[in-house]
Simulated assay, not measured.
Amino acid sequence: MRVWLLGLMSAVLLSFSASAELIKSDNPYRLLEQVAEKTFNRIEAERNQIDEDPNHLKTIVKEELMPYVDNIYASKKVLGRYFKDTKSEQRQAFYKAFTDYIVATYARAFTQYDESKHEVEFVNPKNADKDERAVVVETRVVENGRPPIRLDFRVRYDNSNETWKAYDLVVEGVSLLSSKQSEIAAIIRSRGIDKTVELLNEKAQQPISMDDDVDVPA
């Protein structure tokens, strides 16, 4: 499986709210479709700027994708059992550092995206029942000459913002949230929470180039 593509689509998972006006929709399937379309259209429109300064991809990730995720819920899941072993200040520092790291990681993933080759298809979109508060949105990433990659977004309704937000991505049956939780737990176990936050901040600040690979902290 192409690691960059996993990272690219995973960008919707963890973030903080941007100042841009949110797309509102009672249909989580249509919402994600609109967000994806808007993001990829912007990448195509700003291709020259991206080629000149790949760090511009961070701005696109923050502004177009990140408002549509449940970042606190996902961050707590990633922190896992270490949540109860950390102080409030440490948790807040972790949320911010992990978010910044994710933004940088998936901005790097976008350096491998080619709008002339890749297409995202939404499978069987439908209307969510009025009583539903969690759904799975199925998509496929299509590239000529390669088998489609199955991507299932887990989405939950955020009552505070009155909108649907993604919190996990399951790629070919593998949960990205669970995978990140395992990676981060190993780092916390060996280095402690403060060193983990420091490492994530360092990773997030590294400049982006067009030949970058998706990175994970180690």
Rank of each mutant, 00 (worst) to 15 (best):
144 N>G: 03
149 I>Q: 12
103 V>K: 15
139 T>G: 08
128 A>F: 03
35 V>F: 01
65 L>Y: 08
53 D>A: 14
152 D>G: 08
153 F>Q: 05
140 R>I: 01
108 R>M: 01
105 T>S: 13
94 F>P: 05
105 T>K: 15
98 F>N: 12
90 Q>L: 04
68 Y>G: 00
128 A>E: 04
126 K>E: 00
89 E>V: 11
122 F>H: 03
45 A>C: 10
122 F>I: 11
142 V>G: 01
137 V>P: 14
75 S>N: 00
127 N>I: 04
70 D>E: 04
153 F>K: 03
150 R>V: 15
100 D>I: 06
111 T>Y: 06
105 T>E: 13
119 E>A: 09
74 A>C: 03
109 A>N: 03
96 K>H: 08
150 R>F: 05
117 K>M: 07
94 F>R: 05
38 K>A: 12
143 E>H: 03
88 S>T: 11
98 F>Y: 09
109 A>R: 00
62 K>Y: 09
136 V>I: 10
143 E>Y: 05
97 A>G: 00
137 V>N: 08
37 E>C: 05
151 L>G: 09
49 Q>D: 15
43 I>H: 13
145 G>Y: 00
71 N>D: 12
73 Y>E: 03
119 E>H: 11
101 Y>F: 15
86 T>L: 07
141 V>Y: 13
112 Q>H: 13
67 P>C: 07
59 T>K: 14
115 E>Q: 09
89 E>W: 10
136 V>K: 13
129 D>C: 00
63 E>N: 07
61 V>Q: 09
111 T>H: 03
45 A>V: 06
128 A>V: 10
72 I>W: 00
75 S>I: 00
157 Y>G: 01
70 D>V: 00
56 H>S: 09
58 K>H: 02
59 T>I: 12
102 I>H: 14
94 F>W: 03
111 T>F: 02
76 K>Y: 06
110 F>S: 10
54 P>W: 08
152 D>Y: 03
128 A>T: 07
39 T>L: 13
51 D>T: 09
123 V>T: 08
117 K>S: 01
35 V>T: 04
129 D>L: 07
89 E>S: 12
83 F>I: 06
128 A>S: 12
45 A>L: 12
111 T>R: 05
151 L>W: 08
54 P>E: 06
93 A>K: 11
41 N>M: 11
52 E>L: 11
138 E>L: 07
70 D>L: 00
54 P>F: 05
94 F>V: 04
92 Q>F: 04
43 I>E: 10
64 E>W: 05
120 V>M: 14
150 R>A: 14
60 I>H: 13
99 T>G: 09
150 R>K: 15
110 F>G: 06
139 T>M: 11
79 L>W: 06
118 H>R: 11
148 P>T: 11
80 G>F: 04
147 P>M: 01
110 F>N: 14
82 Y>D: 14
113 Y>C: 14
142 V>K: 13
76 K>F: 02
134 A>I: 08
155 V>R: 04
108 R>I: 08
84 K>Y: 04
47 R>N: 09
39 T>H: 15
92 Q>M: 01
56 H>G: 07
65 L>Q: 07
119 E>Y: 10
135 V>L: 09
51 D>M: 08
